[in-house]
Amino acid sequence: MIRVLVVDDEALVRSGLRMILEAADEVVVVAEARDGRDAIAAVGRHRPDVVLMDVRMPELDGVRAAEEIGRAQAPPRVVMLTTFDLDEYVHAALRAGAVGFLLKDTPPRDLVAAVRTVAAGNAMLAPEVTRRLISSFANRGASRAEAARERLRVLTGREREVVSAVARGLSNAEIGRELTMSEATVKAHVSRSLAKLGLDNRVQAAILVHDADLT
């Protein structure tokens, strides 16, 4: 069962998300929270697998809450929710450790699929809007691109191929088919690459690749 915490300052939005998620098999909403402070407390109480959290909220916004939640032991996977497809706060949240974001008008089927995707350990990079956001806010100046390329030089050629595929939004299975390797081998390459780069998750690796202008 995938345990989900829904965070939004509007009760109607929370209710709608709960209804969509609980209509799906093997998904349960364990709690709701109305702002970032409530979300942090709810994570401690309910230990959800996934947190769906609005970016803009009173008291404590989603970005700062994501940063705090990320410091917890075995933190849940955080997906940001926003009304805007190009929201500067979302890029900040990705850098803070969130694994992706969704628009609030995402179709119910896609919302459920997103929850299952991140619960399985993958990042929300496949939707076109996520790729557009990363590309728009990565701010790839010449010096930033060179710095990113320098960081990526610690990787082997195969590891660079894998993280480049991650940046294109491919799952481990898809990367395995493209590069002719087992899914377990892909997962090992991703883990080693993240460790070498000092990164926490696939989204941060994707941003680094975009910064390097290698996609």
Rank of each mutant, 00 (worst) to 15 (best):
E178R: 15
R45W: 03
A195L: 12
A72T: 10
R158Y: 01
G44W: 02
P127Q: 03
N139M: 11
A93F: 05
P58V: 04
L152G: 05
R158I: 14
F137C: 09
P48L: 09
L103M: 13
L81K: 06
R158M: 14
E178G: 07
A147S: 12
D25C: 02
A173C: 01
A120S: 15
G16M: 12
D87H: 10
F101R: 04
T106K: 02
E178F: 08
V28T: 15
V29T: 08
A147R: 13
I40S: 02
V115N: 12
L197Q: 01
D105R: 12
Y89T: 06
E32M: 07
D213W: 01
E159C: 08
V27G: 03
K104N: 08
A65V: 10
A24S: 13
A24M: 09
H91T: 06
K187Y: 07
L52D: 10
L214G: 01
N122R: 12
E178L: 15
R160F: 13
T215G: 11
K196G: 06
L21R: 08
G121L: 01
V50Q: 04
L125A: 05
Q204C: 07
S143T: 15
E67T: 15
V203N: 03
F137G: 05
R47S: 13
P58H: 07
V112F: 04
V129I: 14
D85V: 04
A72Y: 04
P108V: 04
P127A: 07
E128P: 03
L152P: 02
G36I: 11
E150S: 13
V129R: 06
L81Y: 07
A126Q: 14
A195P: 00
P76R: 04
S191V: 10
G100L: 03
V13E: 09
D213L: 15
H46E: 15
V6E: 11
L133P: 02
D35G: 03
A96N: 07
E183W: 00
E161K: 10
A145E: 15
A42H: 02
A11R: 15
V118G: 05
P107N: 05
I20N: 11
A66S: 13
G44M: 10
A184N: 13
D61S: 06
L208A: 09
L197K: 02
R45D: 14
A123H: 02
M80T: 09
A123S: 10
D38C: 08
R149Q: 12
V118D: 09
V29R: 04
G97L: 09
P108E: 04
L12E: 12
G121M: 01
I207W: 01
L170D: 08
V162K: 01
E146Y: 06
H210P: 00
D213K: 14
R153H: 03
G36N: 09
E178V: 14
V78T: 12
A188R: 13
K104P: 06
R18N: 07
D54S: 01
S135Q: 15
G97P: 11
A11W: 00
D87C: 04
S143G: 02
R56G: 00
E68Q: 15
R37I: 10
T106W: 00
V203T: 15
E10L: 14
R56A: 09
A96L: 10
H210E: 13
R56S: 10
D87Y: 02
R149C: 13
V13C: 06
D25P: 11
D35A: 08
D200I: 05
P127C: 05
I2A: 08
D211G: 02
A113N: 11
R158G: 03
